[in-house]
Design a protein around this nucleic acid. Structure first.
Lengths: 354, 354
DNA sequence: CTCCCCCTCTGGATCGATTCAGAACTGGAT
DNA sequence: ATCCAGTTCTGAATCGATCCAGAGGGGGAG
């Protein structure tokens, strides 16, 4: 068994408190004694005060949790999520805080369990706001948390950092509309739970459970409504995940008919890249070009010339962590909206004359 | 103050143990009582058993640490590290384990502190093996750990998952040598601590503190020795970090003279990309092409046509975590060498006739 | 020579749970 | 009526530290 603080105290012949002080408050004992204690501890193979015991007694942990509403391994696959994490970690590092990555597996019971068992002082929630049940688990846990979108039923005490999803989406859709596109498809990740990849009947944009996707769809719809294209005239596509393959599956066969869409508005760059993959494929060779837009402006968007909406990813993570680690005195200051920018590149162009 | 388990017990009129059982061992009490306890707990706003207290008593935490020998925010900047993390998290998820990201900042005292204070059951160490002092901190802590390279003084009980750095490096260098290159530069990250970006006098490959870089340099040297190019004829360059900018700084001015190298062998794809940035820049326009190789085969390597060595990144992470979470009975099975492959693309070519 | 203060160090209470041996009760078989 | 085997619940010990009020001792001021 590993020696405990008590064992070291006995070996040196001092009290437990003194050994504790040797580690945590050097000013509380003489340098000589401290020296002797640390040496004995080392000789005995004492690994230093047990972090768990320390946290219990002190009442805080020194770590914050990052909650993903997806599988953890997906988080690392999504470049935007990775940049968000980079921001969170930068802020955490500045506060001497570690990061606990908490997986929330599909199973809700397990997920609750994960939230309840995480030894942390608070949570940054990535990409929830839709998953109200996850927020409920968090509320029950009674720890502070920050979300990356205003929660469904946002109260004045909720803290979040997001963007104006709807306005940003309207902006990029307006760009596409101004190019003359009227037959348009919208592509989102898991628009309706468990729907198979492909087109979907959706009565209205506000039926989407995922808040981010809902906001973006609503913005797309706003822009097209302005040019006389009704929601019911838009094709809604769902991908079974936020990755290229899923997007490719979602648009399979989409461009076949004579009335095929001339533009696809995706809810993320990763999805847009999947669409571009299909358009670059052999099946599409020789056909008229299709405009494609993304969202987020990940690094690869620039290299392939994807028109997209830029949002400050690291910044989002950094601010989320700051909001958690030292909350502003004024609770209103804990509702942050970050700026976005339309980035027009080569993936969008005028409607081809047929 | 949040209610404790004891408070719930008092409210229901049962003992602490019974409430504890209601959460952790439903079979130890009647369904009716359990139901009543859980309801009361909910009504009181009891957040469930305190994870810290639970870990203390149970003796394990349910989380593993991932140790980076760099700042945490760098870890997310490096695509290879991200893929490694994806692998670790996939394995952790399978075990219902969370991931604590532990940065080891430059300051050694702080770094030790970080290791000593992490509430985890074990560590995966990314990219150490060089930093023997980090391993010492780990050994002192007395927790199991897995490294991504054999430690300096690897014992039979050490667990690690790596590749044969030297053989892989020799392979790619042999490819470059076979193309006729004889004036060659080697580029590594922080080859010597605190050296400024640029060329370096290094008596021999085995003087590099970082084990990974050392292995790769040694492999490069092997291949060139075979075609009659001595170590002293190779140019050694150091970059002050593993990123494009650092690499660009390291090769600044390198291609100016008449005897400029015709090939640059980098120790990572990210560094190689930085070299390509310089070669694609205006200063280099019109000059003869320079062959460049990387290492790791990150996603971007394929898109820019970088010749490199492929190694299974996610696999490495996954196996590291597995090795930690359920160690093989046979300790020899805890020394894993993963296969690598030379990927020849367009960034390497024959020496231009001058 | 006292008195008082400062510096070191100690003891016991405490953080919030888990665990396990055993007490109390229940019901069925003998 | 007695006994036994389950089932359900309890109590005390324990995990490994931190914290705070206060004890003891040494030195300087009066």
């Amino acid at each position: 068994m590993k020696p405990t603080l008590q064992a070291v105290a006995d070996a040196v012949g001092v009290s437990r408190s003194t050994v504790s002080n040797a580690y945590a408050r050097p000013d509380q004992l003489s340098a000589a004694l401290r020296q002797r204690i640390l040496e004995t501890a080392k000789a005995m193979g004492y690994p230093g005060p047990n972090p768990t015991a320390r946290s219990l007694r002190r009442g805080y942990v020194g770590a914050i949790g990052v909650l993903f509403t997806s599988r953890l391994s997906y988080a690392f696959t999504d470049p935007f999520a990775v940049r968000f994490l980079a921001g969170v970690s930068a802020a955490a590092e500045g506060h001497g805080t570690s990061l606990l990555l908490v997986p929330m597996p599909g199973d809700r019971a397990e997920a609750r369990h994960a939230v309840e068992n995480a030894a942390v002082d608070g949570f940054c929630v990535y990409c929830a706001g839709d998953e109200t049940w996850a927020l409920n688990a968090l509320r029950d846990r009674g720890l502070p948390f920050v979300t990356t979108a205003p929660p469904e039923d946002a109260g004045p005490d909720d803290r979040y950092v997001g963007i104006d999803e709807r306005a940003a989406a309207r902006g990029i859709a307006a760009h596409v509309a101004s190019l003359g596109h009227r037959r348009v498809a919208l592509l989102g990740d898991s628009v309706l739970p468990d729907a198979p990849a492909g087109p979907l009947r959706l009565p209205a944009a506000d039926r989407v459970p995922h808040t981010t996707t809902r906001g973006r769809f609503a913005g797309f719809a706003d822009a097209f409504a302005e040019v006389g294209v009704a929601w019911s005239d838009l094709t809604v596509l769902t991908a079974p995940g936020n990755d290229r393959r899923a997007a490719a599956a979602a648009v399979a066969g989409l461009f076949d008919g004579p009335d095929a869409p001339t533009a696809v508005l995706a809810c993320s760059d990763v999805l847009a890249l999947g669409v571009l993959d299909v358009l670059a494929g052999p099946e599409h060779a020789g056909r008229p070009p299709v405009s494609v837009t993304g969202f987020d402006d990940i690094a690869e968007a620039a290299t392939v010339g994807l028109t997209t909406v830029r949002q400050p990813a690291e910044e989002k993570g950094r601010i989320a962590a700051e909001l958690l680690l030292d909350p502003p005195a004024d609770p209103a200051a804990a509702h942050v909206l970050l700026p976005t920018a339309l980035v027009v590149r080569t993936s969008t162009g005028p409607v081809p004359r047929s």
